[in-house]
Amino acid sequence: MSDIINQFLAPALMLFITGFVGAMLKRNLISLFMCVELMLCGAMLALLSFASAYDDMRGGVFTFFILTIAAAEVAVGLAILTRLFSVAKSVSGNNLGNLRD
């Protein structure tokens, strides 16, 4: 049982950590978004690894919700990003204050 969970949990954790390192280190917002997506994907895989080991539907349903929310989040985030680019001519996170006015 624990082997089956570990087989899918280890790549999921590794993917989450990769995304986390990127989210900490990246400065521009597009790369940062991509790293957040990787973190979400790692969380989904971890949920599914437990759900498939226990034949429990709830992990699958939560994965479904994460997919929905991630799609909405990307749409809103990229809209803000294009707005920032038209105001500040750059997508660096340091310029986010320019959106105030």
């Binding site: 624990s2 570990n6 949990l9 280890a10 954790l13 950590i17 080991a53």
Partner: peptide, 14 residues
Amino acid sequence: FVGWVSPMLSQAAA
């Protein structure tokens, strides 16, 4: 670190 912690987590979950 993941290689160390992941088997323990799955052991606990099993």
